[in-house]
Design a protein around this nucleic acid. Structure first.
Ligand SMILES: [Mn+2]
Ligand SMILES: [Mn+2]
Ligand SMILES: [Zn+2]
Ligand SMILES: [Zn+2]
Lengths: 132, 132
DNA sequence: TAGATATTGAGACGCAGTCTCAATATCGAT
DNA sequence: ATCGATATTGAGACTGCGTCTCAATATCTA
């Protein structure tokens, strides 16, 4: 199952992981996959990502510090590095009084293909509005 | 209801907003509050925050770009500014091919009071481990 | 005032994720 | 190999957040 996660570079949801695992192990139950994902996260072998409210949890076998760019249309999530300057975490800690452990940066926008579709859509809307 | 949100500086969940609104307007239904929150967000009068998977959505009347520090123990969320350098968004856009709209930084750690409790707890654990 | 339209709240519903528990598999000692 | 003890598994009940439906009510408008 970790293999499935490692092979996946698209930050799959638990349901997607389940589907993919079932290709190799058809009888496996959902509970087992959810359980195992939680264990992997707890053991530091995987990360959970919250990519926006309402969206379901997504899993990432890449546990090193990195950030994500998310397409607001199709939900595609790609890895990206946006490290803050070395001092930033300590500065923030002393400024807030919190004992800080980690941080993440999340970019939101439109992936190239959704972007193309979106531009076309806007143009159509303009036309329709004019003709009405 | 916007007033309630504006008065709240703790990034309340929908349920908390509901409770607070009910103090002034006891009969109001949950559906109305959920609906109105969504409308406020859509109208740009409020923001929704995803502060970690499993956590419920939290609302923020501060719609200007800012970031958050989250306590992993008690869930307290405070505002913080961690702006990326001006070019960063554009750079990231050209590097990824995405058309980027926005970004957020999220820090995770322990707030002062949870931190104190946590240290005490660790010490206790050490003692217990030694004595076992 | 009467009718059309919009807003409301109760509760049904949907869905992701967790929990329960009986069935099954794995282990360890003999 | 055989037995009992222990751990893992999968089906499905359950939970909590949020949305949808719809009848009731409030608000416009002629
Ligand atoms: Mn990643
Ligand atoms: Mn805020
Ligand atoms: Zn896309
Ligand atoms: Zn705290």
């Amino acid at each position: 199952m970790l293999d499935v996660l490692i092979a996946a570079h698209d930050h799959p949801t638990a349901a997607q992981v389940l589907d993919r695992v079932r290709e190799h192990q058809p009888g496996i139950g959902a509970a087992t996959v959810y359980r195992t994902l939680s264990l992997l996260v707890e053991a530091g072998q995987a990360r959970v990502l919250s990519l926006g409210e309402g969206a379901s949890a997504r899993y990432d076998a890449n546990v090193s510090r990195h950030d994500h760019v998310l397409c607001v249309d199709c939900g595609a999530a790609m890895d990206v590095a946006a490290p803050l300057p070395a001092r930033a975490l300590a500065d923030m800690a002393s400024r807030t009084g919190y004992d800080l452990i980690e941080y993440d940066v999340q970019f939101r926008g439109r992936c190239p293909s959704c972007n193309k579709a979106h531009r076309k859509q806007s143009k159509t809307n303009e036309k329709r509005n004019r003709s009405v």
